[in-house]
Design a protein around this nucleic acid. Structure first.
Lengths: 338, 338
DNA sequence: TTGTACGCGTTATCAC
DNA sequence: GTGATAACGCGTACAA
């Protein structure tokens, strides 16, 4: 009979326990011992009532007052791969230590991005991590003003109060391409993300095209194709490429996912990897070690984001910290596919 | 000089525009025409000031007052596959029409679930969708009380005011297993999710084991292995299985991901699919059509979640709606792998 | 232990 | 006609 149909508020608990909301707040928010510890009896009574009523608090009210939500956000563009999974899990683990929770914010398209990002720009997310390629196409000023910390994977962005991670994407993909050229490959295909913005402006593509250019090889537009996001698309695209009168003898994919698809398409067509077709992926996910053949991939040597997440929390604790630039250069991780 | 270092509030805009916060609120929240439309001049002035100052509102304050956050949550357990990607994207699209945003809530482990779910249980998420296998292991009462709508993939759960989706998982997996038996397979392996709870209690496993039992075949524990989550694990596990003195002649995987890995492991070991090894996956993701051989998979025929999301929004609009039970039975989608 | 101002926007009511 | 006042939602934290 005591149960209202709606949420249980602090006031309900206070009434039930016969104390003031202030006392309840102290007890339930842990800070029961601000100066003089409350008597055990009171404390227990409050806790019991809270449990019995199923009190759950209200984040909106708390974070409005505290100006802290104990929430961090991961901004990403689906589809999700093992790369983001790993980041998510590590965030979760590190956040749990500090009693923070993690939420994901999927961005479907650039024109709807502002809408999706309201959680970050108008809500009170204490910190946010923008996955690669996103930050370069979004306006971060609103997000910056509304959060205590922003961590961004970006090669070029530089903004006050925002921490960035540099992967040296262009350079490392160029290295990979050059490696293929040195191995005698001449018809090197590129499997691009359809992406949010023009695929031909991605750092990965720039690295690929730059390396070709420096080697005096013209980019053959027929060898540059989108489809790296979805495995099923990639398979079709690569089959297509292999059916060309002059098929590629190597392929660089903007994702490991696309590269795996290439391996499969090659197998479908009876094309030997790496003999007839060298394949290099991007991301260096764990799966790369277990494909057949194991996939050569450009990426972080170990997918360890601990430092990044720690830095985010450091800035949440103290937003006046100078903006940092974390360098985590990608490398070419050679396996058997190239 | 007008710019404070902190957030811009409605009060700031009001001061700048020389009107009251109430007026600003009316203008900026769209309800400018509460009864009598405000003069264009005032409205424009307010809008200009808001833009100039970079006003972004404050979700905490708004949702505290309105008791609405215009946010829906997707609760899931990483790693993420194409299944969740599709759900995410469809949610995003349908949410955008109603000016809602979507957030993801990753759950790492059951004992930390309550912490992760605070966004749902204490925050003001208007609605939440729990992906399969999650709801059965979580206490949803808090989430239920704190949201207007809950949509849950579950075979067994039945709770007042919660909408559920029934996939007939056990039955459909049993059918698939029976199909393998009818085709003469006798050593049928099962690739399980390590999962949050005991793998041996999953509906999928129950369907598999039940079908075997009904056919008078004993479950061989050596043929039941975990590892369906991560492709790299699955490859190793299936290789292991194939190296057994008495290797399996068929395999049912709790995910398509694991089934793809099985295809690869088979290819690594020179085992022919489906001749030497029949493989059936779960989820019926689009990729299934493009593996080699194309993967037979149990799952929704088309991954279309529109009805589900619409139902969620319907309940958000009117929480008094009777709890619905959406039936979306899985079927066996035959391709070449079995 | 408690009263209460506060954080920020919303909306019903009131005043010029 | 135009726009301001003020109560409100819910928890927090300082002063009493």
């Amino acid at each position: 009979m005591a149960s209202r149909s709606s949420r249980v508020t602090l006031r309900d608990v206070a009434e039930a326990a016969g104390v003031s909301v202030a006392t309840c707040s102290y007890v339930l928010s842990g800070r029961a011992d601000r100066i003089k510890p409350l008597p055990e009896a009171t404390r227990r009574r409050v806790e019991q009532c809270a449990r019995r009523l199923g009190y759950e608090g209200n984040t909106a009210a708390r974070s409005l007052r505290r100006q802290r939500s104990e929430l961090i956000a991961l901004i990403y563009a689906p589809p999700v791969g093992p790369w983001l999974d790993r980041l998510t899990m590590q965030c979760e683990d590190l956040a749990a230590d500090r009693r923070y929770s993690v939420i994901g914010v999927p961005i479907r398209s650039l024109d709807r991005a502002a809408q999706s990002l309201r959680v970050v720009t108008r809500g009170h997310v204490d910190g946010a991590i923008f996955t690669p390629d996103l930050a370069d196409h979004l306006d971060l000023t609103a997000a910056r003003r509304s959060t205590r910390a922003l961590m961004v994977f970006s090669e070029h962005l530089t903004a006050p109060g925002i921490d960035v991670i540099r992967n040296n994407v262009e350079q490392s993909v160029a290295e990979a391409t050059t490696y293929l050229i040195a191995a005698g490959r001449r018809r090197i295909a590129f499997l691009a993300h359809a992406g949010m913005a023009s695929p031909l402006s991605s750092d990965r593509y720039l690295g690929y095209a730059g390396a070709l250019e420096r080697a005096g090889i013209a980019v053959d537009p027929r060898l540059v194709r989108a489809g790296a996001e979805a495995r099923e698309d990639a398979v079709l695209v690569v089959r297509d490429l292999l059916d060309l009168p002059e098929p590629p003898d190597a392929l660089v994919s903007e994702s490991d996912r696309g590269a795996f698809a290439a391996l499969q398409a090659a197998s479908d067509r009876g094309v030997k990897v790496p003999d007839d077709l060298a394949v290099i992926g991007t991301g260096n996910t764990k799966e790369a070690g277990y494909s057949s053949p194991p996939l050569t991939s450009v990426g972080m040597y170990e997918l360890d984001f601990t430092e990044i997440v720690e830095a985010l929390f450091a800035r949440i604790d103290d937003p006046t910290l100078p903006a940092r630039e974390l360098s985590m250069p990608w490398t070419l991780n050679r396996r058997l596919s190239a």
